[in-house]
Structures are given as C-alpha cells and as structure tokens.
Write a protein that binds this DNA or RNA. Sequence first.
DNA 1: GAGTGGTCTAGACCACACG
DNA 2: GTGTGGTCTAGACCACTCA
Lengths: 255, 255
Amino acid sequence: MGTTQLQTVPESKYWHLRTVLAEALDSDFAVGEVLPNERELAARFGVARATLRQALEQLELEGRLQRRRGVGTTVAPPRVGVAVSTPRDEWPGADEEAWQPLDHGTAAAPAAVARLLETGEGEEVHTVRRIRITNGQSVAAELIYVPSSSVPELSAIEAPSGPARARAVLRELQRLALDAPERAVELGSARAEDAKELDRLPGAPVLVVTTRYVVAGRTAAVSVATYRADTCRLTFGDSGDLEISEAPEETRQAS
Amino acid sequence: MGTTQLQTVPESKYWHLRTVLAEALDSDFAVGEVLPNERELAARFGVARATLRQALEQLELEGRLQRRRGVGTTVAPPRVGVAVSTPRDEWPGADEEAWQPLDHGTAAAPAAVARLLETGEGEEVHTVRRIRITNGQSVAAELIYVPSSSVPELSAIEAPSGPARARAVLRELQRLALDAPERAVELGSARAEDAKELDRLPGAPVLVVTTRYVVAGRTAAVSVATYRADTCRLTFGDSGDLEISEAPEETRQAS
DNA sequence: GAGTGGTCTAGACCACACG
DNA sequence: GTGTGGTCTAGACCACTCA
C-alpha cells in the first residue's frame, strides 16, 4: 500500500537493479570510468553481493560494463564493429586486416568440422591459429582447418614451425582464390585456450563464426573464429560499418 | 600430495564440472532426456547447488541443455540453423518464411535506430512487431522501424489494429523492393517484452540482428530482430544451411 | 500439493593486479 | 600488502508446471 506499484509482475531484484544501474551508467558515468567496488555497491543498494553480481553480469553481457579481476569494474566503450563478411569475398588478407598468425600444426578435425570438409572423421588436417587485433585489442581467435589435399605444395615448403610456417600456409590458401559462400554465427563459451588469447576467463561468452571456404565447388577449408561477445559487433555485407557511430568527438575513452 | 596433478593451472570447480557433464551428455544421454534435478546432481558431485548451477548455465549457453522452471533440465537438440541473409536479398516473404505479424504501432525510435534511419532523434515512426516460428517454436522476435515517409500510402489504408494492420504495413514494404546491404550481429539479453514472446525469462541471452533496409540508396527501414541464442545458429549466405546436419536418422527428439 | 528451476542471502576464501 | 573481482558454500524462500 502506498507504494506506487504499476507493474502487475514484480520484476526480480537483480533485474530491477540492472535497470537502475543501466540508467545510472547513461546519466552519471563516462566511458572508462571505474565503478565503486562490488561490496560497496551491494551495500549501497541493500542487496547481497551475489545479487548485485547478477545484475553486473547482465550489463557485462550487454557490453555495457567491463570487469577485470584485481582491477575493478569500468564502463565499457561502445562495441567495435568488426567486418566479418565483405561483398568482395576475398580471403582476408594477411595485413590489410589485422590478423596475426600464431602457429601451425596438424590435428584430427572435430566431427562437426570434418562433416563440412567432407573428409573422414578422424582424418588429420592442417590447422592454423591466428588472432585478430582491432584497436590494439585481441577481438578474435581463429582456428582454420585445411585438408592436405587443399595445399599439396605445402610439403615442399621448408619453414620453421610457429608464426612463419603459419604464414606460409596462409599464403598457399590465398593463392587458391577462395570463396566464402556460407557463414554461421552462434553463441558459445570460450575454451580455456581461446580465453587466454582473448584475455578473458574460460567460459566467457563468445560469438562463434564458422566459415566454409570453397574453391571450384569443393570445400577447401573451414575456419572457426571465436569473437569476444562483450566487445564485438559483427557486421556483414556492404561497407562493414553499420556503425552505431558516436558523435564526432569522444572517440577516446577516459584513461 | 599424491594426487595426480598434471595441470599447472587447477581449473575451477564449476568449469571442471561443466566438462564432466558435457562428456556425460555425449555418452550417456539422448536428446530430450531429462537430467536428475539440481539438488540431486549437486549432492552426487559433492558441490553446492550454486556451483552446479554455474556449470549448467555454461552448458545452457552452449546450447547443450534446456532448463525450464517447474519442469526440469533436458538435453537440448542441436541448434537449428536459421537463414538470416539469403543471396537473393528479398524482403522476407510473409509466408515463405515463418514470420508471423503481431501488431503495429508508432513510437519514437531509439537513438541508435534513429541514427540509422537518418531521422530526427525523437521522431515518431511506424513499428511492426512480428515473431519467427521454426519447427513450431518461436525463435525470434523482431521490431521493424519504418518512417512514415517510406510508406506514404499507408495512411490511406483502413485496417483494424493488430495483426491485420501489421500485415498491411508489411505489404507496403514488400512493394518497395527493399535491399538489405548491411547487417550486424551482437549479443544481448532479452528484454521482458521479447522474453515473453520467446518463452524465456528476461535476461536470457539473445543474438540481436540489426538490418538496414535500403531502397534507391535511402534507408527505408531498420529492423532489430532478437534470436534465442540457446536454440539458434544464424546462417548467412548461400544455401542458408551450413548444416551441422545430423546423420539421416534421429531428427526427432525423445518425447 | 509435490517437485522443479529461479532468486536471494551472508558469509568465506581464492586469484590476480598494482603500488 | 591491499584491494579487486571470481569462486564456493549451505542454507531459505519464491514462481512455475503438472498430475
């Protein structure tokens, strides 16, 4: 009684808290600003820390907050748009885009990948790992699966292991003039390996982009790229910037 | 001491639990099968219920589990591939695709949308809500923003409110031969309104697809579609089925 | 009404970053 | 060392589904 109760369904505490915090972020905080610590925020709102954390998790999922252990919680900058598919479906160039080869190896393709490659389930394929850097930040870790049959000349290449050899494999692929007719995007959680590259904890939400590369009607490679879901907005098509462009000023975040 | 400790970094309890459960799902459970309840699972693994739940949340995020309050936790079927962008970029037909109009109204476009529409910030635009059904299940809720200038003939249309009028607006849009040069995908959480349509709780993870529709170089409409991240894999390009196709049998899930 | 998952509490300790 | 977020516990109660 007396309280203005308009909602028929009283929303849960953490959800309401999320809304309150979101509004506070809009009005009272600048990008990069550090929030009070969780214990203080919880006390301030009169909830248990776990409840507050549930609200913060939501906001982090939405890309509004960034939390780092040992450091604190800061207001996240708007998500960066990363072009995943351009109209000219060229193989993403080694240097035009900020892809950085890590290493090369061979492994049995996972079942899902083997199906796309139309190879035997346990067949050994080449793998190339690389990461994508945007604005000085790792935004994606990619694993490319390449059947030996796609790069027969590779065996003739002598190169040390590591980045150099990875680069050699990528060069071979580029010569093939690959087409990327199909891509799929789904939600996943970062495996420990990817999490390390992306500077996140294992289990962090990621957008998994699976691409089938085709040459002359045959699947020549499959790549599985995991993008940080908190910081990335994947763009497809034309210019690649369906830009939620900020006003001209204010590109820089508070130090 | 004495315990076989091979890992340099001991993984957290819930992450390890996630792995154990994932393996159990692969080997001992069929799609649709109901897991023991959370209290029993927690007891069985000797952890607190909250810890077990953290592991289940991960698996749900990855689309491996489905949890429903009052019912239980079941093994999820593989994600369905939903075609978001086809090579022929036609306006998604009213009936070829399973889009079902809900209602129509007018509202001030949110700032981000207004920017794409190149209209004034607070300007009133038409809105159409519709949901997408695949295999008898709601997979997406969409809100389309249409400036009045894009559908001038609309004022002449007399139609009752609700689905009928929504359909009328969509028909007008179809006549325009819209092109969709740009799309963006990002992670979000379901607002209460969408959550209801999608049969999920507020805050459930969703993939937000923002599309700019263009006719004659001018932005004629913007749609924001939220897809259930747990059940959907978004496909772009060619056939629309970068199908992680199951073996021919076993399309049906256990009742 | 019985049983399920969802929310919430009030603690404790751990892992990490930084001065 | 100090302060941060991350993990974990052992409870309690609530909201929902279904027989």
